[in-house]
Amino acid sequence: MDIGTIEWLERFIQQTSIPVIFVSHDETFISNTANAIIHIELTNRKQTPKYTFTREPYESYLFHRENNLQKQEQIAKKQVSDYKKQVNKWHDVWNKAEHQNVSRSDPRLQKKIKSLKNQKKRMDKATEDFLEIPGVEEASEFHFDSTIHVHRHKKILELSLETLEIANKQLSQNIKLSITGEEKVAIIGENRIGKSTLLKIIMDQIKEHSSLKIGYMPQNYEDLLDPTLSPIRFLVTTGEKEAMTKAFTHLGSMKFTSDEMQQTIRHLSGGQKAKLLLVKMIMDGCEVLILDEPTRNFSPLTTPVLCQALAQYGGAIISVSHDRRYLKEVASTIYELTSEGLTKK
Rank of each mutant, 00 (worst) to 15 (best):
Q74F: 15
K207N: 15
Y326K: 08
Q110D: 05
L306M: 09
K50I: 12
K71I: 15
P294M: 14
L42F: 11
T295H: 00
A36K: 12
L62S: 04
T43P: 01
T343R: 04
S31N: 08
S339L: 02
I133N: 05
V23C: 08
S269L: 07
F298I: 10
I318E: 01
I13Y: 04
R192I: 13
L164M: 11
I334L: 02
R55M: 05
G181H: 06
R108F: 01
K78T: 15
E293P: 07
L116Y: 08
R192V: 08
H99Y: 14
F298K: 01
L161Q: 06
S81T: 15
A76N: 12
I175Y: 00
D223C: 06
G315F: 06
E222F: 15
E137G: 11
N168W: 02
K77M: 11
T237R: 04
K78P: 01
L116V: 13
E138R: 11
R104Q: 10
I21P: 03
D92K: 14
P231S: 04
H143Q: 15
T343Y: 07
R104K: 10
H39N: 13
S146W: 01
D292Y: 12
A331T: 14
E132C: 09
A76W: 13
R55K: 09
A36W: 02
T303H: 00
L268R: 12
D204N: 11
H25E: 10
I179C: 00
K77W: 07
D2V: 14
Q272I: 13
A167Y: 05
N32Q: 13
G341R: 02
I166E: 07
I3P: 00
D2R: 04
S253R: 11
Y51M: 11
Q173C: 12
W90Q: 04
K121P: 05
M254C: 05
S31C: 08
A331S: 09
K46L: 13
A76T: 13
S105I: 14
I290H: 01
K71S: 10
A311H: 14
M283T: 13
I133C: 05
Y61M: 07
F12D: 02
P49A: 08
I75G: 06
S24Q: 07
H64C: 03
L291V: 10
D223M: 12
I206F: 03
W90K: 03
N101G: 02
L251R: 00
R65Y: 14
Y51V: 14
E162T: 12
K241C: 05
Q79W: 11
I187F: 04
S258Y: 13
I193R: 00
E208Q: 08
V87Y: 01
G189Q: 09
A34H: 01
T295M: 04
E59Q: 10
K78N: 14
L289D: 02
G341W: 05
T16W: 06
S178Q: 10
L109G: 02
F12C: 08
F234V: 06
G239A: 12
V93N: 03
T16L: 04
L310C: 03
D204G: 06
L278K: 03
Q86N: 10
H64S: 07
V136Q: 03
